[in-house]
Design a protein around this nucleic acid. Structure first.
Length: 568
RNA sequence: UGGGGCGUCGUCAAGUGGUAAGACACAUGAUUUUGGUUCAUGCAUUCGGAGGUUCGAAUCCUCCCGCCCCAGCCA
């Protein structure tokens, strides 16, 4: 590793920017924008776009605007604009002075519409929505012109003015661009520019009865703000000719639209519509359910902004449809958490262990390292006593091959403590369930090293029963069982592959005392188990932790392989 | 079967006529008081397919195949 960050990997957008800089197309400026519609929460797909836009602006020491594309008051809410701002900030980006709303431009947009009408390039159509659809033609047949297409400029001006004044009901008239009803590009068949919506807008209130459509608003907003590179997703490629048309007709400053492939991730869905469905259908608790791929969900789960930013940079950007392996996101997460998360001991499925030769009332404070990756994080004391809990998974009465952990007669190390040897297994007479282990310890191994140089094959985490804090731990797994839930070749309903095991709640966990009042959103590594994040559901008496991601688990792999071998 | 895009390892992704980067995943080994981390090694004779141009093609040409987007008064 060098001390300086390596240059960002090349991609086609950066190539375009570099070329534009070379030819001085935009007098050396690189002004981008992130333009969310405030009709839902941001997800990791948006994070890709945010990183791209804010990233390029930062790279070229220029500005990135946060602009709310709020042209459809029937779907948009203040709650969403607040969450979006919070999420962008949490991700680590700053729009500075450049917070804008498309609704700020409604007056200007109206004037531009008037200009188009005056030049005979737009007209008021009084066909119904159904009729307009019928006139549009199909993919293979050209459309038919509306009988209102050749209204006079005066009549159009008058009608549009009355639309604005609120004289007409929703759906009775629209303003359309006069382009070409026979265009092979459906979007160019006289697209709608304005529609009547007699609803109040979260920012403009009841001022407007007409609202501009995306295709009219977006390009002009970009133009007004002096955007140089308008980066959006692939599905807007068909809209580019219209983006260009509007700006060309109006003879205004003309940014260039560049399209990239949106992010897809395995084992989840990344569309606002589907995420809304998960929330409203009660399949998850809320937008910030830790299983959700939303920024707020990832945050509550324990993801770090750093990990997400790194991920977005490393997946690259291109024009081909792709689906990134969730394992890659998890890799980026672990990389960050490994460096920064303090280690701590917690037992999720407790098995009681009594150290028979350890004095009844003795308690020792043992030194534990907070993070072996960062000595600067120091050490802490962990209490040790006669009765402990270890993980049920760390004991096998009849150990299989390659199982190195505790078993009858076997000696292992308790991390930072002592070597212990299992001398007896206590079972419930009724059920045969193992309820307790009797062990002995070697006092000479305090701290975990044997003076005689003898080795053990395993080190277990543990917690002192008398000192442990009881906690709830929520174990999360993929939301869907299928790598691509929306791949509808097999089943038509994407929700059919919703995983029944995406959440497991463990309420009888024990964590070391230092975790008693862990602040919500603080992250830890529970040694040998994974990374966990304190949830805001924690109370004074009982902390709640979300499992962010497991540690890589060699033993789990071995078990999987052994199972497979058995089957075949 | 109109138009617009896209096809390079299981997954992302560089490469823009000079002989296939890198990452994840996977596999093997070493180190290890986390079966974690770290380290080492392996992993596309081949770029959707077939022809052609060229001394030389993933890159240029032709044809074919596959996938995605567009028929909202959503964005």
């Amino acid at each position: 590793m060098t001390t300086t960050d390596s240059a960002p990997p090349p991609n086609f957008i950066r190539n375009i920017i570099e070329e534009d800089l070379k030819t001085d197309k935009y007098s050396g400026r690189v002004i981008t924008r992130f333009p969310p519609e405030p009709n839902g929460y941001l997800h990791i797909g948006h994070a890709k776009s945010i990183c791209l836009n804010f990233g390029f602006a930062a790279e070229y020491k220029d500005e990135c605007h946060l602009r709310f594309d709020d042209t459809n008051p029937t779907k948009e809410e203040v709650e969403y604009v607040e969450s979006i701002k919070a999420d962008v900030r949490w991700l680590g980006f700053d729009w500075g002075e450049h917070l804008y709303y498309a609704s700020d431009y409604f007056d200007k947009l109206y004037d531009y519409a008037i200009q188009l009408i005056r030049e005979g390039k737009a007209y008021v159509d009084s066909l119904s929505a159904d009729e307009i659809r019928e006139h549009r033609g199909t993919l293979t047949e050209p459309g038919k012109e509306s009988p209102y297409r050749n209204r006079s400029v005066e009549e159009n001006l008058d009608m549009f003015g009355r639309m604005k004044a609120g004289e007409f009901e929703d759906g009775t008239h629209v303003l359309r661009a006069k382009i070409d009803m026979a265009s092979p590009n459906m979007l160019m068949r006289d697209p709608t520019l304005y529609r009547i919506r007699k609803v109040s807008h979260h920012r403009t209130g009841d001022k407007w009865h007409i609202y501009p459509m995306y295709d009219f608003t977006h390009c002009l907003s970009d133009s007004i703000e002096g955007i140089t590179h308008s980066i959006c997703t692939l599905e807007f490629e068909n809209n580019r000719p219209l983006y260009d048309w509007v700006l060309d007709q109006l003879k205004v400053y003309h940014p260039q639209q560049i399209e990239f492939a949106r992010l897809n991730l395995t084992y989840t869905v990344l569309s606002k519509r589907k995420l809304i469905e998960l929330v409203e259908g009660g399949h998850v608790s809320a937008w910030d359910d830790p299983r959700m791929p939303t920024i707020s969900g990832l945050r509550r789960r324990g993801y770090t902004p750093e990990a997400i930013r790194n991920f977005c940079e490393r997946i690259g950007v291109a024009k081909r449809d792709s689906i990134v392996d969730m394992a890659f996101l998890e890799y980026c997460l672990r990389e960050d958490l490994n460096k920064h998360a303090p280690r701590v001991m917690a037992v999720l499925r407790p098995l009681r262990v009594v150290i028979e030769n350890y004095p009844e009332d003795q308690v020792e404070e043992l030194d534990a390292i907070n993070n072996p990756e960062d000595p600067g994080m120091g050490t802490r004391k962990v209490p040790f006593s006669r009765v402990l809990y270890i993980e049920q998974d760390d004991f096998r009465e009849d150990p299989p091959k390659k199982f190195f952990r505790l078993a009858p007669g076997r000696e292992v190390r308790l991390r930072y403590a002592y070597f212990i040897k299992c001398t007896d297994v206590v079972k419930d007479e009724q059920t045969g369930e193992i309820i307790e282990l009797r062990c002995t310890y070697d006092p000479k191994t305090r701290g975990g090293d044997a003076p005689d140089g003898r080795k053990v094959k395993a080190t277990l985490h543990w917690v002192s029963a008398a000192h442990a804090v009881k906690a709830e731990v929520r174990l999360y797994d993929h939301l869907f069982t299928k790598t691509n839930p929306t791949d509808e070749k097999k089943s038509s309903d994407w929700k059919s592959s919703l995983s029944p095991n995406s959440l497991e709640r463990l309420t009888e966990c024990y964590v070391e005392p230092s975790l008693a009042d862990a602040a919500p959103e603080s992250r830890y590594q529970f040694e040998r188990l994974g990374y966990f994040c304190a949830d805001r559901d924690s109370s004074d008496t009982s902390p709640v932790f979300n499992r962010t991601v497991t540690l890589r688990d060699e033993w789990a792999k071995i078990q999987k392989a052994q199972k497979k071998k058995k089957k075949s």
